[in-house]
Write a protein that binds this DNA or RNA. Structure first.
Lengths: 353, 353
DNA sequence: TTGTACGCGTTATCAA
DNA sequence: TTGATAACGCGTACAA
């Protein structure tokens, strides 16, 4: 399976490369018979245009750059899955970069993506990023940018996000409706768009139901595995400790559970509501936890669709908008959990040994 | 942050592009003063060589292709994370392709990677792949190939895999030592290297301890969410049903648990051993399940290191070898699980409401 | 020590 | 309708 160029076809047919090129891309006036010959020959030789040469020439590279903070994160890997699926169907390749939550590295990524002549850029901002000048520059060069999940209001670009407000609202309301009043909210860096939207949803639900908002129950940060424990301990030592937890990530959820276990603390049966996880994680956590499921894959798909739409109709002005993908609240109530748990941990009944 | 070329530097300094090129790559005899000037100017303009032009020129593209069956799979996303980390440190970009477990698409991926002039290829075979001629061709063109996780014995290339035999052996032996004799093994496609190695480890452990091997307890396949249930039901209806499960993937593990729950079947407390999951999943599954943890990230790192070593010392013949990365067996015994579980599901003691 | 010219694969422009 | 040529950015023989 050698790789043939336009030259090979030209030589084969005693034509010039330019004629072959025209025939191949169907453009311009050309002898139908010549065209047929070229197409036939290209088919026979399994000719594929060299994307590198195309990029160098300045035309489309048919590659899109994707910059995420971390690949090894269920949300992002699912999102990338969605992106890749759409990109593949529409004939694009995906070049992946990790910012590792570093602003420096994100800027380097953007430069590298540009120098690789990507046709468009899909990015979820690092947690360190507040200034978006580097993305503005990309746009200024005429390369479409679509933000997803971690977005910035300072950039005038299409954004695709989960309905963070709605998800947080539903989660909080559910907790309130099951009798909780002291709902701790463990979340990530306060300046991220997703953090703010979730907090807003949380507050709105409290307000609607006349539950007092208590700043002491909110914890922000990038918690390492060893930092969640002390934080939980601190919360539980409050005069009026939490009777529920609503966390902004599956990492925090797991950290929270682990901490409670290690400290041999208990919270009421159906209280702990784990927010914003991915569907697979939700499955694994079942039957113990309720969950707001993030539509990771769908976010990736929609973002990729929007980006490619923009790439392919650069001339027309496409509307810049923010697309909100709905979240899903999976509630496991006390009874179902107890039943599940009973089955899982019961003494043997079916098996003898 | 415009992008400057070698030409800009040449014009700026009234030099020819070739002089600048030489100065930049330090090669050849060149006036130290000129070199200094060029370097200084390049620094000032934040010059970055255009990778596209480099690739077209035929020299290194400083990109490596990574082909995996699925990105949205904990194992592969972690592996990619490891790959990207190493690649980044050594100045390479990662272009990702998904074969979606399709042989056709894997071949297309390989072609695309080649036409993007990757300097090397890292691949985990699709489950449909048995013929590796497409990879042989890549090697024949002088492009290094490293296989990881899902490898083929038919290709003479460096391979990086988990110690599947050892992990399966340890897991099975643990089950036997805790009194189990009817250990079901739920696994994936029988022709995959990893499947065979794990099965061999399982059998070796049985043999060592004089436990009879029963073909009826082995189940192969690509089980969808709805297929695990019936399979478990079937197993439990055997005259002598299993008293333990050893599964080859976290998906199967979760499917198995869900099925047991749904069917309200119970197996003894510390019996179900879940094999071959990734560390994060193991965390989530705790406290209920013992686990053989796959060193996904490390596999990715080692594979990337080997590949880049081969890329950068193409001239010397590097040894072709198979690297086995150890697995880790995390055992949760009955008592710890009970304690964990008690903390997690206990009636409230710390919280009043 | 430095400059000129060519080629990598392709497309666009202009001439035939 | 087709062919020759320049250009994209770079490295490198070869000439100066």
């Amino acid at each position: 399976m050698e790789t043939f160029t336009i030259k090979d076809i030209a030589r084969e047919l005693n034509l010039s490369t330019s004629t072959v090129s025209r025939a191949l891309r169907g453009s311009y006036e050309i002898n139908p018979e010549t065209k047929r010959l070229v197409m036939e020959c290209a088919e026979r030789l399994n000719y594929r245009p060299n994307p590198i040469a195309l990029s160098l020439k300045g035309s489309a590279s048919r590659a899109i750059g994707v910059i995420v903070p971390q690949i090894a994160n269920y949300f992002f890997s699912q999102a990338i899955n969605g992106i890749e699926a759409i990109a593949y169907n529409r004939g694009y390749h995906v070049i992946i970069f990790q910012s590792q939550e570093s602003y420096e590295r994100e800027m380097a990524n953007v430069q590298q993506a540009m120098s690789r002549k990507v046709d468009g850029l899909l990015i979820s901002l690092s947690s360190e990023t507040s200034d978006v000048a580097h993305l503005q520059e990309v746009q200024d060069k005429g390369v479409p940018v679509v933000l997803f999940d971690r977005v910035s209001s300072e950039l005038n670009a299409t954004k695709v996000v989960a309905d963070n407000f709605g998800g947080a609202f539903a989660a909080t309301e559910h907790l309130i409706q099951t009798g909780r009043r002291r709902i701790a909210h463990l979340t990530i860096q306060p300046w991220l768009s997703i953090t703010q939207e979730r907090l807003a949803g949380y507050r709105a639900a409290l307000e609607k139901h006349g539950v007092e908002f208590d700043e002491n129950l909110i914890r922000y940060g990038t918690f390492g595995p060893d930092e969640v424990g002390p934080m939980i301990k601190e919360l539980m030592r409050l005069d009026s400790p939490p009777d529920a937890f609503f966390t902004a990530s599956d990492r925090l959820a797991v950290g929270c559970l682990t901490a409670l276990r290690q400290q041999r603390l208990a919270i009421p049966d159906d209280v702990s509501l784990i927010g914003f996880t991915n569907l697979n994680v939700a499955d694994l956590m079942a039957p113990s936890l309720s969950t707001v499921v993030q539509p990771a894959q769908e976010i990736g798909q929609v973002a990729a669709e929007r980006l490619i739409d923009q790439i392919e109709r650069k001339h027309r002005a496409l509307p810049i908008e923010t697309v909100k993908i709905p979240t899903e609240l999976i509630v496991r109530d006390s009874s179902s959990r107890t039943a599940d748990h009973a089955a899982l941990f019961a003494t043997p009944k079916t098996v003898t040994h």
